[in-house]
Nucleic acid binder design. Structure first.
Lengths: 151, 151
DNA sequence: CAAAAATAGGACTCATTCAGTCCTGATTCA
DNA sequence: TGAATCAGGACTGAATGAGTCCTATTTTTG
C-alpha cells in the first residue's frame, strides 16, 4: 500500500499529456479519448485541477483546458496535493490539535514530520517537465513534432 | 492524503517503544497499556510484525514480544512494508501485468517507478534507532536509564 | 498434571473513503 | 439563438480500513 488515489494518478496522466501538447487547449472529451480514461472522471479531475490553479480553463464552443504554468515549475508534489490534499503520512500531521488522544505524550510527532518532509522533498524534486519529457511517445512525423516542442 | 494506514502508525509506535526497552520482552497487554492503544488492535499489529520477521515472540505465561534485530538495521520503509504491504504509489507498480488497460501505451510507468524509488529511499534512510532515540521520553531516574541503554 | 497466561490465526462487522456517474446551471462562440 | 463546453455539487455502489472477537496452541507455574 501507501498509495495515492486514482484521481491523482489520472491527474498526472492528464497534465503530462497537456505538457506535451502546449500549443493549444484540449477539451475534456478530447482528453478522455486521448488518454483512454472515462470522460466523467476526466472531467471531474480537470475541474479539480483548475480550481486548484494548476490548469486554466476556457468555456464555450472552442473551450478547453491548458496548463496555467510552465511544466518546469509544477512539481509532482503540487499535483498530488491538489488532488489528494496535503501530503500527510499520519493523521497527527494534518489534523486539528486535539484529535489525537496521545498528543500530550507523543514523542514521535517530530519524527513523523521529518519523515513527511523527506517524502515531500522527494516529490518536489520531480517536475511535470521531467515526467513529460520521458513520457513523450515516439512519433512518426519528427519534423513537425520538433517544431511544436520548440515552443 | 497520501497516508499510511493506522496499522503502520501503531506498529511504528510499538516498535519504538520496544527499541527503548530492549532489556526484556513485553506482552501485548503491557504494550497496550504503555502506548494507550486498544489491546485487540495492538495484538493484531504485533502478530503481523512477528509474522513478517521484525519481532520475535515467546508464548506462555512469561511470554511477549521483542525486536528480532538491532534497531539500527530496521528501516521505516521495512516497518511500513511489513504492515501495509509493498510501497507502491500506483497500482501499476504493484499489480500483476494485464491489470492496467493502458499497459501497452503507458509511457509514465518508468516515471512512477522513479518516484516510487525516491520515496522508498527517503523511508529507508531513517532507522528505528533514529526514531527511538529522539522519541525516548525524558526520565527521572537517569542513572538506571543510562545503564539500561548501555546494552 | 492441571490451570493460567500468553501468542497464532482467522472470521466477522461497521465505518469511512474512493470511484464513478449524473444532473443542472453558467459561459462562450458561431 | 443554439450548440458546445466548463462549473459545481449530489448521489450511489464498491473497496478498503479499523476494530472486535472467538477458538486453538504453547509455555510456565504451582
Amino acid at each position: 500500500m501507501l498509495r495515492m488515489t486514482k484521481q491523482a494518478d489520472y491527474g498526472i496522466v492528464l497534465m503530462s499529456y497537456l505538457a506535451n501538447q502546449p500549443e493549444r487547449p484540449f477539451s475534456a472529451p478530447d482528453l478522455a479519448v486521448e488518454t483512454q480514461l472515462p470522460l466523467p472522471t476526466v472531467s471531474k479531475v480537470l475541474k479539480h485541477l483548475c480550481r486548484e490553479g494548476l490548469l486554466s480553463s476556457h468555456r464555450g464552443v472552442k473551450g478547453g483546458y491548458s496548463l496555467s504554468q510552465d511544466p518546469r515549475q509544477i512539481t509532482v508534489a503540487a499535483m498530488i496535493a491538489a488532488l489528494d490534499g496535503p501530503i500527510a503520512f499520519t493523521e497527527c500531521i494534518e489534523d486539528t490539535p486535539g484529535s489525537c488522544s496521545q498528543e500530550d505524550n507523543c514523542h514521535l510527532r517530530a519524527n513523523w514530520q521529518r519523515i513527511n518532509q523527506s517524502v515531500t522533498q522527494a516529490l518536489e524534486d520531480i517536475s511535470l517537465f521531467d515526467l513529460a519529457v520521458s513520457s513523450r511517445p515516439p512519433l512518426v512525423q519528427l519534423g513537425s513534432v520538433r517544431g511544436a516542442l520548440a515552443n
